[in-house]
Design a protein around this nucleic acid. Structure first.
Ligand code: FES
Ligand code: FES
Lengths: 157, 157
DNA sequence: ATAATAAAAGACCTGCATATCTTTTATTAT
DNA sequence: ATAATAAAAGATATGCAGGTCTTTTATTAT
């Protein structure tokens, strides 16, 4: 539904928002390490976001990425639009050339509910909303450490 | 969410169910033509379904595909499982390695609702349910003819 | 038996998302 | 000025879903 690129973008932005101020930037290497993403590939994605002024970047020593107050209020749908485009949100889940009430596929009503629900979700949630959840300890943007306390994961040696 | 292969499978099965009896089979060519799908590619998909006994096939003259009464009661989720697998229905929409209540991503609760909703949908609807809708004229499995009455589509000449 | 038909099977091709590697450019510290 | 740093940019590679083409096998009608 969301492409990997898009998910990488969202997670990175949240990570940047969580870890930087206008003073202290964070580099691609560290973002990639912490989120376990391919660094160079991530670079391209962050480039796009920078071009669209969704994040800010500075080259050179002590350079890196940051995100300003204003951009933290950006809704997820904006980022999805930039990276993936928004076609998904009005296309037929059954593969018909177009989704319409007049010529619906057998699951149109059901699909539409979920599609619209997701659209609402992405349209209402901002970067900041996600950061807050993280800072409150109610959500995570990094993978769980599977070797930590070994709750549910099978340890392999 | 559903792969093209999977959508092709679902649409074809419904089409077969709608157009055949055990006596009269339908060939790949015709299915492909009517649904506007690549014939050879569709062949592979129908092969898989045949192997899994979801549809029946007969080679040679007057051969083709058909689907028996029993298989029409199969739920969509079964077909999705065969073609795409069911990983989607318990994976994290945000790209975390695993989806869990204990280590949730910022959109876990929201994603889970939609994911579970779709799972319920696919688990409850059968081929027959879809065929009924088609036969009642309440849904379509073929694309609308864009040059028909020219309601909403822009005609190009 | 023979020819025709249609699915099955296998080999191959294509395009695109994803990923890596290298070179360039901007910035900063010395 | 020089060297070090880090993003930007560009070129190239990889993997896989999707798609095509060819050959084989099973079935049927003659
Ligand atoms: S027609 Fe299929 S989702 Fe609307
Ligand atoms: S953890 Fe992301 S959807 Fe459950």
């Amino acid at each position: 539904m969301l492409s990997k690129s898009c998910i990488y973008a969202l997670r990175s932005i949240v990570f940047i928002a969580h870890h930087t101020t206008t003073e202290f930037k964070i580099g691609i290497k560290e973002i990639a390490r912490e989120l376990e993403l391919p660094a160079h590939y991530l670079g391209k994605i962050l480039q796009q976001l920078t071009k669209h002024s969704i994040i800010q970047s500075v080259k050179g020593p002590n350079g890196g990425f940051s995100i300003d107050e204003k951009s933290q209020k950006i809704k997820l749908i904006t980022i999805i639009g930039v990276i993936d485009g928004l076609d998904f949100f009005n296309s037929c889940g059954f593969g018909l050339k177009e989704c319409s009430k007049e010529h619906p596929c057998p699951l149109h009503d059901n699909f539409k509910i979920y599609r619209d629900g997701l659209l609402d979700l992405f349209s209402s949630k901002s970067i900041l909303d996600m950061v807050s959840k993280i800072e409150d300890g109610n959500a995570f943007i990094q993978n769980a450490n599977l070797y930590e306390t070994g709750k549910k994961s099978i340890k392999k040696y």
